[in-house]
Computed example of a mutant assay.
Amino acid sequence: MSPLRVAIADDEPIARLRLQRLLGSDSGIAIVASCGSADELLRALQTQPVDALFLDIEMPGKDVFAAWAGLPPPRPRVVFVTAYAEFAAKAFEIDAVDYLVKPVVQERLFAAVERVRRDLAAAAAAPPVPESRHIPLPIGRRIRLVDLATIDHVVVEANYLEIHAASRSFVLRRPISWMEAQLDPRAFLRVHRSHIVRIRAIEQIEPLSSGRYRLRLHGGAQLFSSRSYRDAIRLALGIA
């Protein structure tokens, strides 16, 4: 079995070394990068394949949420290791696998590691991305082939995906990470934990004082981004 490749980012050297020591005690874990900032982490990820990130939140330089959202899919799994309990809700907006509050005990840390491994195993067992440009959607006893180019946006509702395509909507029991993997990242943009949008379907974008955006689609639908995806949206849409 291949080792779990992890990267650590924490601006406190002592905390970073402790996390290295705890994770390093598992022979099934390979620590491929240990960084003191989000910017340093992003540079490391350009050359090192990583399965999971163990991140502090309050670090100098680039915001860690924006840094993660700006990574191309498939993104590494994220476990936050921080002294700030109040960021938990925001952390799960970016599908964090776990959220640990310092000081972290070894048992709790390795429970998070096992969650990462289970999540990766589930993703590996998922059906492969189809080579065609259609996605098969079960509708009753029939299978409808929906052209990916007709999809305007996808919304998560509980454990289901609501796929809006060509003035119709379809419901599918799949995680949004599966849907994201089916779509060309040059044509589709994740703007929220629960929303994926086709870039060419966006008709108007309005910045809000909260750091979010209101997106109006050509069909009249309106979606709101989250702050975590602000930098990714600006990059994809060429917003200065």
Rank of each mutant, 00 (worst) to 15 (best):
L145T: 07
L42I: 01
L109R: 09
G28R: 15
D39W: 06
R118C: 13
E114N: 11
V81G: 02
R75F: 06
D119L: 07
I139C: 01
Y213M: 03
L172I: 02
A121R: 11
F54Y: 11
A221W: 15
F170S: 04
M1F: 13
L215Y: 13
D56T: 06
P72K: 14
D51Q: 02
R174Q: 15
E86S: 14
A66W: 03
A124F: 11
L120G: 13
A232V: 01
V79K: 00
A9T: 11
G140F: 13
V171L: 11
I163V: 09
L22C: 09
Y84L: 09
R75S: 12
S194R: 11
I205Y: 15
R133S: 09
A96R: 06
I57C: 08
G238M: 03
A181W: 12
I205D: 10
R21G: 06
A166G: 01
E114Y: 12
H134Q: 10
R75K: 12
L100Y: 06
M179K: 03
A122C: 01
P49Q: 03
E107V: 04
L189K: 05
H164Y: 15
L109Y: 14
P130F: 11
A232Y: 02
L4N: 05
P136K: 06
V32M: 14
A85H: 12
R230C: 10
Q48L: 15
C35W: 00
I29L: 08
V113K: 07
R173K: 05
S2W: 14
A149E: 11
S169V: 13
I31H: 04
V113Y: 08
V154W: 10
E107I: 00
Q222W: 04
F110P: 14
A38M: 12
G24F: 09
L215T: 05
I29E: 03
I233V: 08
S37R: 09
R230Q: 13
P76R: 01
S194D: 10
A7R: 11
A44N: 02
V129N: 06
R214L: 13
R234Q: 14
